[in-house]
Amino acid sequence: MKLVSVVVPCYNEQEVLPMFYEEITKVTAQMSKDYPELTFEYLFINDGSKDTTLDILRSLADKDKRVRYISFSRNFGKESGMYAGLKNSKGDYVVVMDADLQHPPSFLPKMYSYVRDGEYDCATTRRVSRKGESKVRSWFARLFYKIMNKISQTEIVDGAQDFRFMTRQMVDAILDMSEYNRFSKGIFSWVGFNTRYIEYENVERPAGTSSWSFWGLFKYSLEGIMAFSTAPLAIASLLGIITCFIAFVLIVITIIRSIFGWLDAPDGYPTMLCLIFLFSGLQLFCVGILGQYLSKTYLETKNRPIYITKETEDIYRQRKAEAQQKTAQQPSVPEKENK
């Protein structure tokens, strides 16, 4: 028998979680009939949700022994959620997907068909359209992939999703990269292995709203650039060389104008002011790039945990059993006799 672990990071997914569970169990039940060698477990990662997501997971764990969950002590981010899911998965194959049904569970049979024969180590989806997204957001997304592929030696396919069906060998390779600042899209590509991309049209959420804002995606893109490319450092050095050359040329021009009496100090005040602002801005820009890399190094050396577990299904069941046992042991209060 082959166990498939379905890892599902969740953050405030109370509206779609019951729909997702219904859909995933329906698909996996059919897969178990078509492929009798397969069994499934569902590992949900509650990333510090502030709604009733944890209560729903407790309820699912009560009625379905295949449901496991890990609840974080706070919100650590989707990257930490995926890492926790991969680390705690028990399957021979591991699936990573979102709970919002934008990663259709109906793709799982097709993804497994590519992986089961050993030709591919991973099957993933690639969006060929960005239906439902704003034009500005789509434009920036495409720009990010173009920049990333030019400045990094790790190729990231435009539109590639975190929705993946992977072998245990690939999952173990990903877990060996236990860095604190994680960018999974780059990690998936960096570890290599044969990957099959399945193209599909973008699917909108059936309920709820996405927790990813434009600013959040922008910061996430910077995380990817810093994690898989040192090109910004080279750009900073190049800007330093160019500005030094410009400054040298201006110095030569100023000396020549002074020798021939062409220099008028009051008229040069605006030029000097602009140059001061220009070079100061470039210096701050380059220092900012260095600061970003330094901050990433600082966080890595602190060696903090990627996530902190507050509750699992085993802890919940143990607490529940202890509470029931304590209630059963309490002496009953006799009713007062009627006078």
Rank of each mutant, 00 (worst) to 15 (best):
K339Q: 13
S138G: 03
Y93N: 05
A160L: 03
Y293P: 06
S184M: 11
K150Y: 04
Y307G: 09
Y298N: 12
T312R: 00
P305S: 10
P36T: 07
Y114M: 07
E155Q: 06
Y114W: 05
L278M: 14
I147D: 05
G240K: 07
D172H: 02
V191I: 14
C244G: 15
Q292R: 07
A265I: 10
V115D: 00
K296R: 15
P104W: 09
F285M: 11
N12E: 15
E133F: 12
A141N: 15
A265N: 08
D158E: 15
A227N: 10
E155P: 00
F260K: 01
Q324D: 10
P9V: 09
T301F: 02
V249A: 11
Y293S: 01
G224Y: 06
N181M: 14
G288I: 04
P109F: 07
F44I: 03
M170Y: 00
V191H: 01
F285E: 07
Y220Q: 15
A141Q: 15
K326M: 04
V171I: 05
E23F: 07
I308Q: 10
G81C: 11
P270W: 08
A227Y: 02
D267F: 10
I198K: 00
L86Q: 09
L233K: 15
D47A: 06
T52W: 04
D162S: 13
R182K: 11
T28E: 08
I187W: 01
L217I: 06
P305K: 01
G261K: 00
T39I: 02
T271A: 13
F140Y: 11
G208E: 08
M177Y: 12
T53G: 05
L284Q: 04
V128G: 09
T243R: 00
F163W: 08
I24P: 14
D267T: 10
Y298C: 07
F248R: 05
Q330A: 11
D55Q: 14
S138M: 01
V333R: 10
Y220L: 14
S113G: 06
L273Q: 12
F20G: 09
K320N: 12
M19G: 03
G192T: 01
D172I: 01
E15R: 08
Y180V: 09
D34Y: 03
K339L: 12
T52N: 13
I253T: 07
V6S: 10
F163L: 08
G240C: 03
S138K: 00
K50L: 10
E311N: 13
Y35N: 05
G132D: 09
D264M: 03
V252R: 06
L57F: 03
I276N: 12
V67Y: 01
N181L: 13
